[in-house]
Design a protein around this nucleic acid. Structure first.
Lengths: 205, 205
DNA sequence: TAGATTGTTAATCGATTAACAATC
DNA sequence: TAGATTGTTAATCGATTAACAATC
């Protein structure tokens, strides 16, 4: 289906385009141009046209892109034209925040369970969820068929948890723990450790 | 002082190297090689040597790098050989989690204040902090001399908040709101919206 | 010394930009 | 039609990798 291999760096920009387009749609706009979209996201018009054209001819010369049409296409390409179930591992403050997070709505995701290995936390209520025991994690993930996990456990536990998740069939991991984890090629990991993110900016201060 | 202009992509990898090196140091290791470090972080040995050599000759032929020496150098380069004060804007779940977060310790950062514009939240206690009124934000940031902020407000408020932060002298922004913000060239922004991070991975499912 | 590993150069690879024909 | 803007090609720019002399 995907004739060409699309570079990861392009895939990574599509959610940013999508977010900007949804913002425009919410503002009632109907069409936009590579120029206008580029100004919104801080990327050159040429690059936006090139990125989008990897997947088809979605624009019209002279008039630009239909915002709603492009949104639909990007959602389809990114496979977020559906709802993905997501599990949260670690019921600390960050785990709580992600379980409560209402920003997943309409963006393709839904948290379905949260796990912790601390017996004092197991059974606690977080919004609509009850914290489940890590011991039951593999079985639950398998039976739910979940493919996506967010890790908020301490660094020391992250590799262990990751191994179990991979074993249970998880294919995408958003890792908030401040540590690199090793996974098979078939599994994608995104890192989002707050301190590391800040450290990327202090050089410029 | 910085003779050459160092590409941003290299700066972005240094915190990752640093995290792996600190991990090694904690494990009691004294020296490492570009090969070994590369395996830890999933980056080629050649690239690691090239990245590091931008800043000086920190290794020794035949033996590699002294882990502690390289840690010290990276911390110096990244300007995290000190403690930076950070403010959190938005006292929702995510703001709470960041204010509580103990992962900033020893990594160069310290949260000093948290703000919200919701009168019901102002005055609430979060760990050692009392939620402050957004109306006083600019003054407080200026008088504290803070340069770094983390934004956890709703998307609709993010640009407004950003403008005020820039006005108050903030130079680095870690933005958790799902929206692109516009800032002057002198200000750095990192984005860390959970849904967008997940959307970067679904393509591969 | 022999083995290991750096720092750096040159070669390769990939990504971005500029430019413009096609066309709405 | 005239003006605007796409999709795409070619040119440029930048980043990664391979290779190896230097040297610990």
């Amino acid at each position: 289906m995907n004739a060409k291999k699309i570079p990861d760096i392009i895939i990574g920009r599509l959610p940013v385009y999508l977010r900007a387009l949804q913002h425009m749609a919410d503002a009632g706009l109907k069409t936009t141009s590579s120029q206008e979209l580029g100004e919104h996201v801080g990327i050159s018009a040429a690059q936006i046209r090139k990125d989008i054209s990897q997947f088809g001819e979605f624009g019209k010369q002279g008039t630009g892109y239909s915002i709603q049409f492009l949104i639909d296409k990007l959602r389809e390409i990114l496979k977020i034209d559906r709802i993905w179930d997501v599990v949260v591992i670690g019921a600390g403050d960050l785990g709580h925040a992600l379980a409560h997070y209402n920003g997943f709505e309409n963006r393709g995701f839904r948290v379905v369970a949260i796990f912790d290995n601390d017996k004092n936390k197991v059974g606690q209520t977080i919004g609509d969820f009850t914290v489940e025991d890590s011991a039951t994690m593999s079985e639950r993930i398998k039976s739910l068929g979940v493919k996506i996990a967010m890790i908020t456990v301490p660094a020391s536990a992250a590799q262990d948890v990751t191994d179990k998740l991979v074993q249970a069939g998880i294919k995408s991991i958003l890792n908030y723990a401040p540590v690199n984890v090793t996974v098979p090629n078939s599994v994608k990991v995104q890192y989002s450790d707050p301190a590391t993110n800040l450290q990327r900016m202090t050089y410029y201060l």
